[in-house]
């Protein structure tokens, strides 16, 4: 295993749903307010089998998939994996065709406007911030401390004895969500 792999562990139990990550991200990447942005927080209210109500907030961002559909779909070969195993879009090569936007199963490619020719953007776990010694902006600002960027060993420590799910570099964890990722695994397996 390449020890340069970067992970972002997202602890769903700690997300307050406050949206600081969304504003932090748009500011960092200079995205206008009307942009769909690189990160969203989905609120899910549901009752369990005992009738008890739950409300969870799920930060949704590029999963940096192990087998990225966006990379496959890009006709300009603008999308590649870097040495951290993060999926990156080369802005020079992007032709703004929107194929990656359509291909991404998670809706995590952002086209600033629907107008053709607009280049695709997505999360790169704040490469430029990390180069300058800063944490990814979502991680730094999160009021719940739900994000933790780390390498393999720390990631393993953070998911130990907890429910977890990962398709790539993003690792969701929870102590409460007993089904975490189960339905996605079934989905990925073609069910």
């Amino acid at each position: 295993m390449d020890n340069k792999n970067l992970y972002m562990v997202i602890d769903i139990d700690k997300c307050w749903g406050c949206m600081a990550c969304r504003v932090a991200c748009k500011q960092e990447h200079d995205m206008p307010a009307e942009s769909s942005g690189n990160i969203d927080v989905v609120k899910i209210e549901q009752k369990d089998e005992n009738g008890r109500l739950h409300c969870d907030f799920v930060p949704v961002m590029c999963q940096h998939c192990s087998s990225p559909a966006c990379l496959e779909a890009c006709p300009a070969n603008a999308i590649s994996k870097n040495e951290e195993q993060l999926v990156c879009i080369d802005q020079e090569c992007c032709i703004g065709c929107g194929s990656c936007f359509d291909a991404c199963p998670y809706g995590c490619v952002s086209l600033q406007a629907a107008a053709a020719g607009e280049k695709a953007q997505k999360c790169d776990l704040c490469i430029s911030r990390r180069e300058k010694g800063f944490l990814p902006s979502c991680e730094q600002h999160c009021l719940g401390g739900a994000f933790k960027s780390c390498h393999e060993e720390k990631m393993q420590e953070l998911i130990r004895e907890r429910y977890h799910y990962q398709t790539g570099s993003i690792v969701y964890v929870s102590s409460k969500l007993a089904d975490l990722g189960k339905h996605l695994k079934l989905f990925a397996a073609g069910n």
């Binding site: 799920v58 199963p105 998670y106 102590s175 975490l180 990722g181």
Partner: peptide
């Protein structure tokens, strides 16, 4: 919000809750 994100989040968290830690 993009429906794909909502669908993903719902599928991700599922419907079973384990409250043993809290209890």
């Amino acid at each position: 919000m993009n429906q794909k994100k909502i669908d993903f989040a719902k599928k991700l968290i599922g419907r079973k809750f384990d409250e043993s830690c809290s209890e």
